[in-house]
Simulated assay, not measured.
Amino acid sequence: MNKLGLFGAAALATAFCFSSDARAVGDGDVSGAALDLVTAYVNNGTTTGNGGSFVTKAVKDALGWTSSQWLYYFGTSTLSAAKWYEQIVPPGGAAPTNFVEVDNIGDVDAGQIFAINATGSYTGHAAVIIGEPIDITPPNAFYTPYITGTKQWAVPIADSTGSEHGQNASYPDSRRSASGFTANVPGTAYIRLYSDATTGEILSYGWSVTATNDLNVYDQSERPFAIGELTVSP
């Protein structure tokens, strides 16, 4: 049975449009490696662990590194979402070693890492961006809440999560089917980013395109987040 369901099959087919048709392990294609993990779940039921564990597996596969190589370079077998955030935005204002931070919407692209830091009881989250942002600012489309002076973007991602990224036929979560949402497995979905309408600076994010009020949109003071371009070579 197709684990992705009705919307999921279409979502996965759409997601593959963002990636190359052929990918070799170790070629540095993080987006392709993330989509391979989604395919592995669809075909074989293979799971990865959520958030940071999914991203760790995708990046490790993209680099073609063994567990020993990974441990030598990063000092731990897997990076949590908070640790992925710290890779992009190191504590104390230090310069990142393995990433270039992306803070303008015009520079967001497939293969980059989206990471939300842990705050309070929230443990954070991490995902792989698999395509360019899609403008959903009125009048292109209308998704509430609209924040004056900003543009809104639907950003395609691959991740593993226990919380659905909204229920929207245009921007679906592939883990949604007629029977419900399948949690804690790899899939494709969309998050929402808000950018300054003039400068393009990324200001806040929403867990889904279908977030309905200000409580579902977070800025850096509420839940610090970052997007990073990996600079480590295979």
Rank of each mutant, 00 (worst) to 15 (best):
C17G: 14
A13T: 14
L79D: 06
Y41R: 05
T212W: 08
D21G: 03
D159F: 00
R175C: 10
V30L: 10
S208T: 12
F114H: 05
Y218S: 14
G5Y: 02
S31M: 02
Q69C: 01
V100Y: 10
A169I: 14
I105G: 05
I191A: 03
S170P: 02
N104V: 09
D173Y: 05
F54W: 00
P224A: 00
L37Q: 06
Q112E: 15
S20H: 11
S67I: 09
G45R: 11
G200K: 06
F181E: 06
I116M: 12
Q167T: 13
N2G: 11
S208N: 07
V89S: 05
H165E: 01
D219W: 02
Y85V: 07
D21N: 11
N213A: 12
S53E: 13
V155F: 07
P133F: 00
A10V: 07
T148D: 13
V128K: 10
A33M: 07
G180F: 05
T78D: 12
D159E: 15
A82Q: 08
P172T: 03
D135I: 03
E86H: 14
K57D: 09
I130D: 01
A169H: 00
V185S: 03
R175P: 00
A22S: 13
R192L: 06
V185W: 02
A110S: 05
Q112I: 04
T123F: 07
T137C: 00
G75R: 08
P139R: 02
T198N: 12
Y41G: 01
Q112D: 01
R175F: 04
L63G: 05
G124C: 09
S67V: 07
V38C: 07
T148S: 14
D173N: 14
M1N: 12
Y146H: 12
I227M: 10
P91N: 04
S20R: 14
R192C: 11
I147E: 04
A11D: 11
D21K: 11
G228C: 11
L63N: 04
V185H: 09
P133A: 04
A24G: 07
Y85P: 05
S208C: 04
V108W: 08
D61M: 14
T161F: 00
S174E: 04
N216M: 04
V55L: 08
D196N: 15
L193R: 01
L215E: 14
K57I: 08
G228E: 06
K60N: 12
V100K: 09
A94H: 12
I129C: 02
I88T: 06
S233E: 14
T123A: 13
V102I: 15
A82G: 15
W70L: 12
A183R: 13
W153Y: 12
